[in-house]
Computed example of a mutant assay.
Amino acid sequence: MTTVTRSGRGLFAPLNTPIRNWQGRRVWIVGASTGIGEALALDLAARGARLALSARGVERLQAVRAACMARGVAASDCVVEALDLARDADFARAQAAVLARWGGVDLVVFNAGTYRPLRAWELSAEAVRETVELNLVGTLCGVGELVPVLLRQGSGAIALVGSVAGYGGLPKATVYGPTKAALINLAETLYLDLSPRGVDVFLIDPGFVATPLTAANDFHMPALQTPVQAAQAIVDGLARGDFEIHFPKRFTRVLKALQWLPRRFYFRLVRRATGL
């Protein structure tokens, strides 16, 4: 396996190659039908990217595709590939279709996921399996299919959408939080393996974003953002070449700082902030 030498990366240089020019860039968004994925697709469409849109709901994806085309993307440069990450071999099938059309891919965003607010006494085998299979197992399997492609190219990037829920325990994130913590760990591991070989890895950790999933929350969500704001923060982070793109900073920096506190203070502050 050929190792690509990265030059010009000093101590304070970007960890990834900054992505600033989107014109003609081949971007595959897995989880593009609603929320952050939809907003990111629309943002990148306006910047001239070529888009492959994937999710389980084909009808909703077609609506997103139409909205992207309204922003100037040619019909041939905005395609829909239905995909259920929780199904074995579904990612490989969709990837083959994307590669057959483009011959390669420049950025794959793993945004697909599910969330069910659960307290410890509400756990069920069905809820655990549904969340873990989609959020973690499906993403891991998809990454396993994608990495050999990017290594053969000697270029490209993977972006994993984690969450601040992966930083530390939060009420009602009994299953969701552990899957996102695992994705944070996965992104760090992938970076160590792939960056020296010419493949960039981005970790996207949003705070609370108003999506159909977070609409199920019945507690106060500090610093709640819109999907459009989230998409802008992601594009800005990609342009800087950040490894971790976390937002909004006024919220995520507080959560990061809380991890340094003794647990008794952490638990007290989290309960006070959420009211749970």
Results as ranks from 00 to 15, higher is better:
1 M>G: 15
4 V>K: 14
5 T>I: 15
6 R>C: 11
8 G>Q: 02
9 R>W: 08
11 L>S: 13
11 L>R: 15
12 F>N: 15
13 A>S: 11
15 L>K: 12
16 N>G: 04
17 T>E: 10
21 N>P: 06
27 V>H: 03
27 V>K: 10
29 I>Y: 03
29 I>N: 10
30 V>Q: 15
33 S>Y: 04
33 S>C: 05
37 G>H: 01
37 G>L: 04
37 G>Y: 01
38 E>N: 06
39 A>N: 04
42 L>D: 15
45 A>P: 05
45 A>V: 05
46 A>G: 09
52 A>L: 09
52 A>P: 05
56 R>D: 00
56 R>Q: 04
57 G>M: 07
58 V>W: 09
59 E>Y: 09
60 R>D: 14
60 R>N: 07
60 R>L: 11
65 R>D: 09
70 A>M: 07
70 A>Q: 08
71 R>D: 06
73 V>N: 05
76 S>C: 09
79 V>E: 15
89 A>N: 11
89 A>P: 04
96 A>F: 09
97 A>H: 13
98 V>K: 08
98 V>H: 12
100 A>Q: 11
101 R>L: 07
101 R>N: 13
102 W>S: 03
103 G>K: 02
108 V>I: 03
109 V>R: 03
111 N>P: 05
112 A>N: 01
114 T>A: 14
114 T>D: 09
117 P>K: 00
118 L>G: 12
119 R>I: 02
122 E>N: 14
125 A>E: 09
127 A>W: 05
134 L>T: 13
138 G>F: 00
140 L>A: 13
141 C>T: 15
143 V>W: 07
143 V>F: 10
145 E>M: 12
149 V>K: 15
150 L>S: 09
152 R>A: 14
155 S>K: 14
155 S>C: 13
155 S>Q: 12
155 S>R: 14
156 G>T: 01
158 I>G: 10
158 I>L: 15
159 A>R: 11
164 V>M: 11
167 Y>I: 06
168 G>I: 07
169 G>W: 07
172 K>Y: 07
174 T>W: 06
178 P>W: 00
178 P>E: 02
181 A>Q: 06
181 A>N: 03
182 A>S: 03
186 L>I: 05
187 A>W: 02
188 E>G: 15
190 L>N: 01
191 Y>P: 02
194 L>D: 00
196 P>G: 03
196 P>I: 03
197 R>Y: 09
199 V>L: 01
201 V>I: 02
205 D>T: 10
207 G>V: 08
212 P>N: 00
212 P>A: 01
212 P>Y: 02
215 A>V: 05
221 M>F: 10
222 P>M: 00
224 L>R: 02
228 V>L: 10
230 A>H: 04
233 A>R: 15
233 A>W: 08
244 E>V: 09
245 I>S: 12
245 I>E: 02
246 H>K: 12
253 R>C: 10
253 R>A: 14
254 V>Q: 08
255 L>E: 06
262 P>D: 00
262 P>I: 00
262 P>Q: 00
263 R>A: 15
266 Y>V: 12
271 R>M: 12
272 R>K: 13
274 T>S: 14
274 T>D: 07
274 T>Q: 08
275 G>S: 08
276 L>T: 10
276 L>N: 07
276 L>C: 13
276 L>I: 11
